[in-house]
């Protein structure tokens, strides 16, 4: 790619990347679990993105930026708490293995924002990522696969399992 002078590079970056700061913060916030760590991760990821901005080919700036945020978050998570990594173990703990979106479990439709946030935050990191990117940021499976660095089939099964767990958490029968 062409080389940008520093002022041009900065203004290009602010124009193309900074509009996605809310999406970046949302992902980091759900992955990291608190404001301070999320802010640190977004700041670090943004500076990293700025340094590598010349390697950005200009196709999908939102997905490109969020993949950096995602990687920075997971690196930080590994540093903070190593127990976050094990999805399978976590899933078995939550006991959602056998029934696919159990039709008998009805979720309360009158959930407020905080309840939903807390429910998502109870999921393992990879599932929080899948739910945030799909349900809240509306990325396609292909984009999510690119951001998370996994095959599309993995995205599909993670999303299915994440939704199953989330439904369990949100359902009245599970919480009571």
């Amino acid at each position: 790619m062409f080389r940008l002078t520093e002022p041009t590079r900065l203004s290009e970056f602010e124009k193309q990347i900074l509009p996605h700061l809310d999406a970046a913060y949302n992902l980091a916030r759900f992955l990291m679990g608190n404001d301070q760590n999320a802010e640190d991760v977004v700041q670090e990821a943004s500076l990293r993105a700025f340094r590598f901005f010349e390697s950005f080919r200009g196709e999908n700036s939102r997905a490109w930026f969020l993949s950096i945020v995602r990687n920075t978050s997971f690196t930080a998570l590994k540093r903070y708490r190593s127990d976050e990594a094990n999805v399978v173990f976590e899933e078995e703990l939550h006991g959602g293995q056998s029934h696919e979106m159990d039709a008998g479990v009805a979720i309360d439709r009158a959930q407020d924002r905080e309840t939903v946030r807390r429910a998502i935050e109870q999921l393992p990191a990879e599932f929080r990522e899948a739910i945030t990117l799909r349900e809240l940021e509306n990325f396609s499976y292909k984009e999510i696969a690119g951001i998370a660095g996994v095959p599309i089939g993995t995205v599909m099964s993670r999303l299915a399992r994440a939704r199953r767990q989330l439904q369990m958490i949100l359902s009245k029968t599970y919480t009571k």
């Binding site: 809310d22 913060y25 977004v42 959930q111 924002r113 939903v116 946030r117 739910i131 809240l136 940021e137």
Partner: peptide, 11 residues
């Protein structure tokens, strides 16, 4: 349910 009350965080 997940999207109804805008649970997304903002920077």
């Amino acid at each position: 349910v997940v999207t109804s009350d805008a649970p997304s965080y903002r920077a």
